[in-house]
Design a protein around this nucleic acid. Sequence first.
DNA 1: CAGAACTTTCAAAAATTTCTGAAATTAATA
DNA 2: TATTAATTTCAGAAATTTTTGAAAGTTCTG
Lengths: 191, 191
Amino acid sequence: MNLPPLIQAFVLHFGEMGSRWGINRTVGQIYALLSVSPQPLCADEIVDALGISRSNVSMSLRELQAWNLVLLKHKPDDRRDFFTAPDDVWQILRTLAEERKKREIDPTLSVLRELLMQKPQGETERFAQTRMAEMHGLIEQLTNWYDDVKKLETERLSALLSLGAKVTRLLEAKDKIVSMARRKPEREEGK
Amino acid sequence: MNLPPLIQAFVLHFGEMGSRWGINRTVGQIYALLSVSPQPLCADEIVDALGISRSNVSMSLRELQAWNLVLLKHKPDDRRDFFTAPDDVWQILRTLAEERKKREIDPTLSVLRELLMQKPQGETERFAQTRMAEMHGLIEQLTNWYDDVKKLETERLSALLSLGAKVTRLLEAKDKIVSMARRKPEREEGK
DNA sequence: CAGAACTTTCAAAAATTTCTGAAATTAATA
DNA sequence: TATTAATTTCAGAAATTTTTGAAAGTTCTG
């Protein structure tokens, strides 16, 4: 591996973390390298920088593309593929959230739905189904929240995060206003 | 494996998902089994239910304990250990979030901090550091939000989730009120 | 269409992770 | 303290994942 020390440390760390993040070492290293490179890199430059085989680079880039974590670029009069990591960190966060949801949550949500459709045979299964229903409910609430929040523009999303738990103060204020309004209602609302 | 079909399907699914969730198949299966069992189970019952070795069960329970995902129980006049999964799904969510943060985020946050302390050698490192700084900033904003929100009682947290993106309406309303107030301020506030 | 430049595929080697059985350890009981 | 019951450890076996090199594929150029 042939990199400036600071970048090498960064790349090696991403390689080590790779397995915890559900990607492998090489994929982690390549992503790290691309994300701090000012220019797009071609496969052979990655081979040189990381000291790994050409085929490994090819497969790992393929995986990064499946994750939507790298972009393909082309230079005029050069038919090699060049790769970069998108440079908007918020966009990267969105992509990561979307891909991890797809891989780690959606399959379970659909299995749970399926199992909850079945009629339980005996008390053991009946109990199991109630636990599955609780899980399913929680996951659904979380994914609904996520689907909703991901639509926000970055600026609003960031504002929301900065507010943190303080939003509950707003909620309290809202509750107060609503209950004040209720005290002398003009008419009842249905449902 | 010797389980009612519904439970078996659930257990097998958690086993398959295990690797995507950063645990292994056995750990996933044991957790699934415990989470739908009405009574706590002892190690040998798990061996019988899942058809795996006693030592594997022992190690996997150890890992689940490291994740804080199982509880130890005891019966009078029986010195075997019995295990259950906590039954509050919100508590499970909190535990999962905490443990995954510890394993997947914190190490990177601290490496980034370290690398950002160093003086960059040359333009390449200088550029790399700005990208690292962006990453670090985003992760910090997210973890600050998380630290804040995790303190909420479950009821409030749930309410917040249900509100979803609609909180932004509250934010807009707040902005409006604040700007109205600013239009004829009694006095300026510092900072 | 032959050759050059580049990329991908894939079977097998290497590395890593998971799982097991035997032995060691712990702790309660007689 | 010997016996028994339960649990843990750990070296090696088995399974899985990652990496490689060689071959095949693709696409452009002359």
